[in-house]
């Protein structure tokens, strides 16, 4: 009962309320309450994630497992950022309410939280993503082989899109007059044709497929047909 029936009822009720609220204006405030609860629980989920991070790293430090010093750095970074953000250390007061102690913006440039974001989190995240440029290129170099028509299409399109966005693309086909019959052979024209018509069509069909899949899965969950989320409890 507690482990199966009630969760199924909670899921069905919360899902059904949001579906009904879309069709009936009389139940809109129900959906507002459900969404407010959802947002609060999503925020609590961040606390859960942080708690899990703490538990894993504290265990690593206390048992002096391999790499415990890095776990300690993670813990110090986490605790510092948490303290900076919770107490708005170094932040400026709110211009409208300077008498209220924590009314100022927690992300202001002057605050310690804003400083860590500007000089640690932001560059680290950007560099991590930038690093992928090397790995994507390296993986593509090893994996892409023009073995059949499909792979030729994939490889050729990627080649055109990449060249079209560089000076090399302009250098190779820029001499074709833009108002001539052969203007469509210019890399910039090919890129526009590919992204506007073919890629849009492909992405549109993929989006439609995903939407149908999500709708079907959502219905299965709300109607209680899919109970896989209960299996690990």
């Amino acid at each position: 009962m507690l482990k199966r029936t009630i969760p199924i009822l909670i899921l069905a009720t919360s899902g059904a309320i949001l579906v009904v609220a879309y069709f009936s204006p009389f139940t809109t405030n129900w959906s507002e309450v459900v969404l407010m609860w959802f947002n609060i629980l999503a925020a609590v989920a961040y606390v859960l994630g942080a708690g899990n991070l703490l538990a894993v790293n504290l265990e690593k430090v206390s048992s002096r497992r391999a790499g415990w010093a890095y776990a300690l750095i993670t813990l110090v970074a986490f605790a510092s950022m948490l303290t900076f953000g919770l107490f708005k250390i170094g932040g400026v007061p709110s211009e409208a309410h300077p008498d209220v102690p924590y009314a100022g913006d927690y992300e202001s440039t002057q605050s310690a939280f804003g400083w860590v974001y500007e000089y640690m989190l932001s560059p680290l995240t950007a560099t991590m993503f930038a690093l992928l440029a090397f790995y994507v290129a390296s993986a593509a170099f090893r994996a892409f082989r023009a073995k059949n028509l499909e792979s030729i299409l994939l490889l050729g399109t990627a080649f055109i899109i990449l060249l079209a966005q560089t000076a090399a693309g302009m250098f190779l086909t820029g001499w074709i007059p833009a108002d001539s019959v052969f203007a469509f052979l210019r890399f910039d024209s090919l890129r526009i044709a590919i992204t506007e018509y073919i890629q849009t069509a492909g992405m549109r069909a993929i989006t439609i497929g995903i939407a149908i899949g999500i709708a079907a899965t959502s219905l299965r969950l709300i109607l209680g047909v899919d109970r896989s989320y209960l299996s690990k409890q």
Binding site: I40, A42, L75, S80, L124
Partner: peptide
Amino acid sequence: SVLIGVSAAYWMINAFWSTL
């Protein structure tokens, strides 16, 4: 390690001040 610790706290603080 710095990235992991700082980003976990960043999202937690965002959720705290903007939602909780």
